[in-house]
């Protein structure tokens, strides 16, 4: 397992005011003033957030508040209209195309950065023509180009950890939703991502299957993994996160430690949202 530095010893004293472009060694992800519109509908109206290594950030909000779009803009599944995304200090370079729309300057940089972000989707999106094991080793073998035997050994360990080792030779269609989502988490973990992005990981599950997926995510949080979790599971979010963000109509309406956001929010809208979701 990788070592993660939690406020470890740093050489030299940091400057009192961080210089432009300077980064703290533990910064895993940084988003600055993200804007995104679909047609005339402005979904993100300037969202900024920072995640340091080991942070578990819960993102909550009503549907249409922009939480999924925010997550999808971070790995460029949606291309933001304006703003900056940095992963591990590396800025995703953008340019304006001939049609006036912004686009990544270098697709291979985007591909490389994506491989450092583990995305878990609401609808699992396992590759249906591959077995569970093949799903898990696909990206390590073909994107990261690591030796297959090593990837298989790791995949077996990960599948064991998420509790579906016995399903490794099955195809996704033959698994329950909860098992598929755990397989999808295993697929993301196999890339050894710097940051995990969860996009409503339990919203498509039958209620009795939610628990098994949340258990896996909680375990990852306890290991100190950096994660952004978009979720409607308020209780879970409160328990597992060390920071929470409430999005409302494309803006961050409330942000802070979970005790504050979930227990004593300053925003009236946030308070109402949480009350209606408990």
């Amino acid at each position: 397992m990788e070592m993660q530095s939690h406020g470890g010893i740093r050489s030299g004293s940091p400057p009192a005011v961080p210089r432009e472009g300077a980064q703290r060694s533990t910064e895993a992800l940084s988003v600055v003033d993200l804007h995104k519109s679909f047609g005339t509908l402005e979904v993100l109206k300037g969202v900024s957030l920072d995640a340091h290594e080991g942070d578990v950030i819960a993102i909550i909000g009503a549907s249409g508040s922009g939480k999924s779009t925010l997550l999808r803009c971070i790995n460029m599944l949606e291309v933001p209209d304006a703003g900056e995304v940095r992963v591990g200090g590396e800025l995703i370079r953008m340019r304006t195309g001939r049609n006036g729309r912004t686009m990544p300057e270098d697709q291979s940089q985007v591909d490389r950065i994506r491989s450092r972000l583990g995305m878990v989707f609401q609808s699992f999106n396992l590759w249906s023509h591959l077995t569970i094991l093949e799903n898990v080793i696909e990206a390590p073998v073909h994107v990261q180009k690591r030796p297959r035997p090593e990837c298989v050994a790791e995949a077996n360990a990960i599948l064991d950890k998420v509790g579906i080792a016995d399903k490794r030779d099955h195809y996704p269609a033959h698994l329950s939703g909860g098992q598929q989502q755990r397989a999808a988490i295993a697929r993301a973990l196999a890339m050894k991502p710097q940051v995990m992005l969860f996009d409503e990981p339990t919203s498509a599950l039958d209620p009795e299957l939610v628990g098994e997926v949340l258990r896996v995510i909680r375990q990852l949080a306890e290991e100190g993994r950096t994660m952004l979790i978009v979720t409607h599971e308020i209780g879970f979010a409160r328990e597992v996160s060390n920071r929470a963000i409430y999005l409302h109509q494309g803006r961050i309406e409330e942000e802070g430690p979970p005790a504050q956001v979930f227990g004593n929010p300053r925003s009236e809208r946030c308070r109402q949202f949480i009350q209606s979701h408990i």
């Binding site: 790995n75 490389r112 491989s115 989707f121 990206a139 994107v143 697929r187 993301a188 890339m191």
Partner: peptide, 9 residues
């Protein structure tokens, strides 16, 4: 989308 998300060209 999942394939793009893992960084496939």
């Amino acid at each position: 989308e999942a394939a793009r998300a893992v960084g496939m060209s």
